[in-house]
């Protein structure tokens, strides 16, 4: 039985900046919209409707007709997210006292710049699968980063964890990283299948494996660490999001089969596919949040033992 104990960090409310937190939430929300916009481009087969980059038809604002609406719309949302990320980084560098979080702000900016360049290159090189898949996967990682920044800048985070000890019979710290790694691998397979590098069968076969890993870790939390409210909440959230994602995946696949002979993307297929991409991003971000919360709320007992040994030796 795990035992809950008081936080070692104590109250650090002085670190909290309400404006920065709200900005971080806005950035994460806009990034999710960007993922949706990107999903629309691929699902509508509009990826090459604007052949040039960084301009669109040689202009900042081309006629928003047909596929151009989706491709240039995606570029506009991406530019907005880029601006928000720049401001987020400057804000973090200016007011944030945690060095690692300032570094994370810089990493987020580098990621969004890389993401923009990948988006441009995939247009100029006519959608090579590996650039397009890297673009899709980095989008998921960037969204998770923005969610993590929102988490770290929240008042709730700064109030400190309510730590509980790890039950050696049911270790969970090591497993916590397996979930986001598996989800990311599954997202990459999905992106590669969408860009026709591999068959959908690999993504479909990956689904029960990832669902199994999610259930394994989330149920272990619910069965053995449920007294910690944060862990309980994130585990339930991850299970819910994952099941939604599996349902949407099945629906997206079935509509693709049903419309295999369609001469243009059909609205139902586009809807389910875009929702599958968006909830995929939410699954990734939730799995990252789960890993973060597990490692924050369940301290590494080996580190504690080593510290105790040092104190005893002194």
């Amino acid at each position: 039985m795990a035992v809950e104990k008081a936080s070692h960090q104590g109250n650090q409310r002085g670190l909290y900046h309400g404006g920065l937190y709200r900005w971080s939430v806005l950035l994460a929300f806009c990034t999710l919209l960007l993922v949706v916009a990107g999903g629309m481009v691929t699902s509508r087969d509009a990826g090459l409707s604007v052949p040039d980059w960084p301009l669109s038809y040689g202009k900042l604002m081309p006629p928003m007709e047909g596929g151009i609406l989706y491709e240039h719309g995606h570029r506009m949302v991406a530019t907005t997210v880029g601006m928000l990320t720049i401001i987020s980084m400057i804000w973090l560098l200016k007011v944030e006292s945690r060095r690692w979080l300032r570094i994370l702000g810089v990493v987020a900016l580098l990621a969004v710049i890389t993401q923009g360049v990948l988006g441009g290159l995939t247009v100029l090189y006519l959608l090579p699968w590996w650039i397009s898949s890297a673009h899709a996967s980095l989008a998921q990682l960037f969204f998770s980063t923005t969610v993590a920044i929102a988490l770290f800048t929240s008042d709730w985070w700064i109030r400190g964890p309510r730590q509980i000890g790890e039950d050696p019979r049911y270790p969970v710290r090591g497993l916590s990283l397996a979930v986001p790694v598996c989800v990311l691998a599954q997202l990459f397979l999905g992106a590669a299948a969408r860009h026709k590098a591999i068959g959908s069968i690999y993504h479909i076969c990956g689904s029960p494996i990832v669902t199994g890993v999610v259930l394994w870790v989330a149920l272990r939390i619910l069965l053995h660490y449920a007294e910690n409210r944060e862990l309980r909440a994130i585990a339930i959230t991850l299970i819910t999001v994952t099941f939604c994602q599996v349902f949407l995946g099945i629906a997206a696949y079935m509509t693709r089969i049903a419309y295999a002979d369609a001469v243009q993307p059909m609205p139902l297929m586009v809807t389910f596919t875009v929702l599958h991409v968006a909830v995929g991003a939410l699954t990734m971000a939730t799995s990252v949040a789960l890993a973060i919360l597990i490692r924050r709320n369940i301290p590494d007992s080996r580190v504690e033992f080593s510290r105790a040994d040092s104190v005893a030796a002194a």
Partner: peptide
């Protein structure tokens, strides 16, 4: 193909 009008092929 034309990606502006995805039915064009």
């Amino acid at each position: 193909t034309c990606s502006v009008h995805p039915w064009m092929r």
